[in-house]
C-alpha cells in the first residue's frame, strides 16, 4: 500500500523543527530515518498531516565527557559500531546494536527514532534502561531530562508530548572495568526480538559488586529486574548461579502470549536468556 497525503516540511535547524512541531501539535510528527514511520504510513497504520523532516539536522555525534556519553538524536545505528569507545564503556549496548535489523536498516535508522518509536523489544530501548540513560527532550519553551525508566510508558508510548522532540540520549559512564553482555532470540536474523536480556556488572575481588539486568519480551516495554540484580551482587564470577537467577526472573514475570509464542514459552525463554547473559558477562569479566 501507499501512504495517505501529508504536508512536508524540511527542518533547517533544531529551532526550526521545534517551531514547526509546536505549530502542528498533535497533527505533526518528526521524520528521522523513516525506518519505522514510513512502513506504518505505507500500511496506513499512521497518517500524520504534517511531517517535519529532521533527517538532515546536525545531531549526529556520539560525544564523550568525563561522566557520560551523549548520543545525538540523529546518530545512525551503524555509528555505535564504528566508535570504539562505545564497545569499551558500554559492551552490552554495542552488542545490542549488532542485533538491530540488517545493515541497510542500521545505515538509516536513528537513535531518536528508535527511542521515540518505543517498540517493546527495541534493542536501544533495552540498552537505555540497562545503563540508566537520560532522554534529553526539547520544545520551544526549553529542555527537560527524562530517565529511561519514566520515558518508556507502554508499547509505542513514551513520555514525549506533542511539540516535543528528543534531541539526545545521555548514558552515564559505568565504572571503569564494567563488563556486559546482550543476548537475544528472534525468529529470523534481523527481526525484532521475541525476548532479549542485557547485563552489566561491576567487579571487585573476583566477585560481582553490582549488577544491572534489563529484559524485553516480558512486558510491553523494557524492564529492569532489581531483585535479580540484588541476588547477584557478591556472587563469585566463577559461580554466579545464573540458572537460579534465570528461574527467579521467569517466575516473577507475567508475559502475554502472542500468535507466535505462548506466555509459558516466553517465560522459559527469558529464564534461559538471563542465565546465558549472566554467564557471558561473568566470563568476560573473569578473562580480563
Amino acid at each position: 500500500m501507499r501512504p495517505s497525503s501529508f504536508r512536508y516540511h524540511k527542518a533547517e535547524s533544531v529551532d526550526h523543527a521545534l517551531e514547526l512541531l509546536a505549530r502542528f501539535g498533535e497533527d505533526g510528527r518528526p521524520l528521522a530515518g523513516g525506518q519505522s514511520l514510513v512502513p506504518m504510513m505505507n500500511l496506513r497504520l499512521a497518517a500524520p498531516e504534517h511531517l517535519v523532516d529532521i533527517g538532515g539536522l546536525p545531531l549526529t555525534d556520539i560525544a564523550f565527557t568525563d561522566t557520560a556519553m551523549r548520543v545525538g538524536a540523529l546518530v545512525r545505528h551503524r555509528q555505535y559500531l564504528a566508535e570504539p569507545r562505545v564497545a569499551h564503556h558500554f559492551p552490552a549496548l554495542h552488542e545490542a546494536v549488532t542485533w538491530i535489523g540488517h545493515p541497510t536498516i542500521r545505515e538509516n535508522g536513528t537513535t531518536g527514532g528508535s527511542l521515540s518509536h518505543a517498540d517493546p523489544t527495541a534493542e536501544l530501548a533495552l540498552a537505555a534502561m540497562l545503563y540508566d540513560a537520560v532522554m534529553i527532550v526539547r520544545n520551544t519553551a526549553g529542555e527537560r531530562r527524562i530517565a529511561a525508566a519514566d520515558f518508556f510508558e507502554d508499547a509505542y508510548v513514551t513520555a514525549l508530548q506533542p511539540g516535543e522532540m528528543l534531541v539526545a540520549a545521555e548514558f552515564p559512564l559505568p565504572p571503569v572495568g564494567a563488563a556486559g553482555a546482550f543476548v537475544e532470540f528472534a525468529e529470523r536474523r534481523g527481526d525484532f526480538a521475541i525476548a532479549a536480556i542485557g547485563v552489566s556488572i561491576t567487579v571487585a575481588d573476583g566477585r560481582i559488586a553490582t549488577a544491572a539486568i534489563a529484559c524485553s519480551g516480558a512486558e510491553p516495554r523494557p524492564i529492569r529486574a532489581p531483585e535479580i540484580e540484588m541476588m547477584l551482587s557478591g556472587r563469585p564470577l566463577t559461580d554466579p548461579q545464573s540458572r537460579a537467577a534465570g528461574r527467579r526472573l521467569a517466575a516473577a514475570i507475567d508475559p502475554v502470549g502472542t500468535f507466535l509464542t505462548t506466555a509459558d514459552y516466553r517465560k522459559a525463554l527469558i529464564g534461559e536468556l538471563t542465565a546465558r547473559a549472566i554467564d557471558t558477562a561473568c566470563a568476560r569479566a573473569a578473562s580480563r
Binding site: Y8, L31, G34, D53, P103, T104
Partner: peptide, 19 residues
C-alpha cells in the same frame, strides 16, 4: 527496492522522494 542515496544503501520504499 534497495538503491544508493549519496552512496549509502537505502530502501526506496521507506523513503519519500522529497527527502
Amino acid at each position: 527496492c534497495t538503491v544508493h542515496v549519496d552512496g549509502t544503501p537505502r530502501l526506496a520504499c521507506l523513503t519519500f522522494a522529497v527527502q
